[in-house]
Design a binder for these strands. Structure first.
Lengths: 222, 222, 222, 222
DNA sequence: AATGAATGAGCCTTCATTCAT
DNA sequence: AATGAATGAAGGCTCATTCAT
């Protein structure tokens, strides 16, 4: 479960894995466009020819980073969603895992949300579709809880998920490993904020502004 | 209050404003590095020479976008924070405004969170400092509510603010003007989720995971 | 006799003089091409418009530097050549003056020998012609001495002059005001070496290699 | 011994050599700054990319020209200085070689003395240091002769060497291959003037102006 | 499987000069 | 006499990619 997405950059890893590992780090540090192929191959200790033997183009590296990250996220989410326990327990476990994955793959997430626009249109569409499916599977848990009455239904589930994911995906913006709170603590607070926001209240509060019960299936894009 | 940050790109605006307007749009669409100076000046209907007469370098455009956006945010926040009403009313008004500003300046925010890394170190530091001050002023409202007992104190205020801002700043990632919910509705739901998450509960629930009452002054960076 | 070629750059000098003074300094420091018009006008405390009011183009500044320097040299040489005294006395005085002028106008000479190639062809020709005349007038003194028998005639006069001028014009290459010898001392040694080389010897030395008595009028260019 | 410094520009030479050969010619003709990289690669029959494959920057070409010339000069000087014969014979041979090298590499010398200022500071310092060492090795010959009493000691050796080198290095300023005197003749006259200036005189003449016997080790820079 | 020389298009920037005021 | 905004051409350099080996 702690497998590195692209192995590590050590001399023992395969060439493609080494390339992906250093590319992820460099893209996160300096941005995709400001990182030259030359820098990547130098950092990976291979030559340009070797890289082009494994990857058809520079943006194939980027796509592969996206692809592996999405695959990992999806696999893990399914594990938790399909696991045992009440819906709240399963959602909590999934949310905790989303956060710990985010902290573990900070660089990958940084690249993900910063460099989407450089993917060729076709691949951007593919990534967005895969991402949307992921979003929908997570949202299904929330909706399950809403149907069971343990989560409030007066806020559209997709908005709650966007809200949570948004918060999570921005952590790479401000989180510093040497900060006051460690990743574990932040995760717990975040999950608490998320679930607390979802939980049905004893008394009816100000509720959502006037449009309860509307169909809340994702007309927004992922 | 609805003034465009860089005027509009029409022939009536000043050259620098026109340049900033089209640069913002292009940077948001294709990314900073993938947008050439040539494209910018062509879209603004001026020559390269004219651009370099007003901006010393391409990244001066970027910096100016950041600078204006931060200035606008700070000005507006102070208006609401210093306004009349209970702390909850003031925080709600500020939060609503953060959201409506985000929707109004979607391009600016997109650029903001995607292109930070291309600013020269010095300016990046300046932007981060100004951003941190903004974050602190917003957080001060939350802390005021915690002291008054209207907001729960068992989640560090800076984390709550990071959580909210994270969610807000990611809207440009998924929001589409032609989606099911309009900006106004999304804003109301988001503010509801935020305030609901903050509100003190009648009975003490599972609270924050084991570490209540810790000093919660921001050791995390903005 | 100590008039500055282009006045000084103080606020009291006329604008053209100030421009020439700073241009000379900057051209000597960084080279003609690496000095921008903007730098010149900034250093002179005027605007571009003002400069183009007085000088039609950047290379007019350069030409004026050449022109003034050549005029100064020619004027001074004539003074010494037409003065009283034996031919040796007059040549010595002229040679000393050549050296002291070189030290006084180090920047001008640096520019002179480094930037000739940027003058438009026509002006380059004009400068070369003026320079050749100067060379010829100096050479005439040597030839006068040769005819009188006080200078050896077995080395063509124009070569001796080239030799001396060459040595003199390179001083800006190695001379440092804080060096062991001051300008005055170097001048005296140089003139001594020059005149000693010219002086007819009691016994016939190895003489020039086999071609005495040939016509030695300048088929070489100045 | 007659190897071209950068091979020739023919199609048979290596690309770097061809680039250096044409760069030398163009820099000598039009100056470093007035020669564009485009012109160089066009004249060498290669593409810009090829040039930047071998030379990191335009001024690397310049530095390489300096470097090769200095290497050549130093190697040759050592050959002559360490050869057989009296000190006067060795100095004469070295001086003749300096001149013939100057004539053979007129373009290189033209560039050398005209474009020093465009080298980055660090490299300028390196070139100056190497140049100074060369100057010192040549001067050592003069000093050896002074100690033996065959050369006059009342003119500092470094000044005499500056004087000679100055004269020599200016030949590219006025020498034309189609002039009245050919390179060989000019060389012999120049060496004659140099050695004649150095030679101790039977009777003590006016000597150097008043400061005989001073320490004459080079406090001036090369 | 891998090399690395070579390409060629494009990028950001500089700058002498002009011109309406 | 003097301004300074604006031009437009060119300049040095980078870089993803190709291809013969």
């Amino acid at each position: 479960m702690a497998q590195r997405l692209a192995g590590n950059a050590s001399a023992y890893a395969s060439i493609p894995d080494r390339l992906l590992a250093v590319a992820t780090r460099l893209f996160a540090e300096k941005g995709y466009e400001s990182t030259s192929v030359q820098e990547i191959v130098a950092a990976a200790g291979v030559t340009k020819g070797a890289m082009y033997h494994y990857f058809g183009a520079k943006d194939d590296l980027l796509y592969e980073i996206y692809h592996r990250l999405l695959g990992l996220q999806t696999r893990r989410l399914r594990e938790f969603a399909g696991g045992p326990g009440t819906v709240e327990e399963r959602l909590r476990a999934a949310a905790v895992d989303v956060l710990s994955t985010s902290f573990q793959y900070l660089d990958e997430f940084t690249v993900f949300f910063r460099s989407m626009h450089v993917l060729p249109k076709e691949r951007r569409r593919a990534v967005r579709a895969e991402r949307r499916r992921y979003h929908e599977e997570f949202r299904a848990l929330v909706e399950e809880g809403q149907r069971e009455g343990v989560f409030r239904a007066d806020v559209p589930a997709d908005l709650s998920v966007h809200y949570f994911f948004g918060a999570v995906h921005q952590v790479s913006t401000w989180y510093r490993p040497d900060g006051r709170l460690d990743a574990q603590e932040i995760s717990e607070y975040y999950v608490e904020l998320f679930l607390n926001g979802l939980r049905a209240r004893p008394e009816a509060p100000a509720a959502a502004p006037g449009r309860p019960g509307r169909d809340d299936r994702g007309a927004t894009s992922a």
